[in-house]
Design a protein around this nucleic acid. Structure first.
Lengths: 195, 195
DNA sequence: GTCTATACTGCGATAGAC
DNA sequence: GTCTATCGCAGTATAGAC
């Protein structure tokens, strides 16, 4: 065992900044979280954080990009399938799994809550625009382009149901697993009633 | 016709600040909107705005309080009715009307969009906590306390449907009236399937 | 490569002149 | 009722220690 290599330390500090930032962003919002606060928790100065990420936005963007990659994998799969009810059901199931995240960690639910509650901060970021594009592509896969307005709304709401189930710890009872399963049930009935 | 009384001018300036603030908050978020920006649009300085509202939060709170009063009227009516399907349907219809706002004005939709997208900023305000209480009371009126988790979720989503219909100009086609009517349709089927 | 010291601009907020 | 002046802290940025 020698001292950690430069690469290990670098990755470590960057990861730690990401983890602390996600926690604080989810708790008190993006704008109200200061770089000084993140730096203090890590035991370094503001400028040290600034070395690893060139702006505060870049920290947020790196968090969003991870979720965008997860959505891309699902979208790529769905667009290769024949359009139809079975594909839509499986698309919702896979997106539900993505939102559940690794079973021990609250990271993904925290991110989803943050996405939902801080859209104004996120909207103007490049990474935020990328996220919205993915969201629109998933919604488009769930409903015919020329379906009635009410069906368009149902497809968006079926995604909102999954998001809400993932992060609504304090508004709904049950474990996260129970909420996510109930959300998938409601989501499926919103989007996949026999057509 | 004499010169305007002090009270009239005061009310006027206060109203103008509210209108400008709501527009900017909805467009670019609460945190990113500076008092200097609001003051400049009004042709005065930052400190002049501070004469009318003691803090930036107080401007936001005065916008929220107006909507809270509208919710209170609906809640008071619903709690005086016998619990049942008919009351729930009419509750959703009345809340839908509140969200539509006066037919010529976009003020209420702007406020609803802002509420939905800036929850993190609002959550820590007193007025924000009051809003959340009202929202929970409406949700409680829409579902039995000991109903299954999926039904709890449906009641929240039926409100989310109305909110989404009111402000989703850029994500859904149709006029505001069409979107609000479609949202009410989806909302009713989420919450009021024969029980 | 990683961090500290330091400084710049603009923010919300306050005090006091007119 | 509105202004100028000022405060402390935010995000950003650079120079240089180790």
């Amino acid at each position: 065992m020698t001292t950690p290599s430069v690469d290990e330390r670098r990755t470590n500090t960057r990861e730690q900044i990401r983890a602390i930032a996600l926690e604080l962003f989810a708790e008190q919002g993006y704008e109200k979280t200061s770089l000084r606060e993140i730096a203090e928790r890590l035991g370094v100065t503001k400028a040290a954080v600034y070395y690893h990420y060139r702006t505060k936005e870049e920290i947020l963007a790196s968090l969003l990009d991870e979720h965008v990659a997860g959505m891309d994998a699902i979208i790529e799969w769905a667009e290769a399938q024949p359009a139809g009810l079975a594909t839509r059901r499986e698309l919702l199931r896979r997106y539900s799994e993505l939102l559940a995240g690794p079973s021990g960690s609250e990271d993904v639910p925290h991110l989803i809550r943050f996405l939902q509650e801080s859209q104004t901060s996120i909207k103007e970021l490049n990474s935020g625009a990328e996220m919205r594009k993915r969201f629109e592509r998933v919604a488009a896969l769930l409903v015919d382009r020329d379906a009635p307005l009410a069906d368009q709304l149902r497809s968006r709401l079926s995604l909102a149901a999954l998001h809400f189930g993932a992060f609504a710890f304090d508004q709904l009872p049950g474990t996260r697993r129970e909420r996510i399963d109930a959300a998938l049930e409601v989501s499926l009935e919103l989007c996949c009633r026999g057509e």
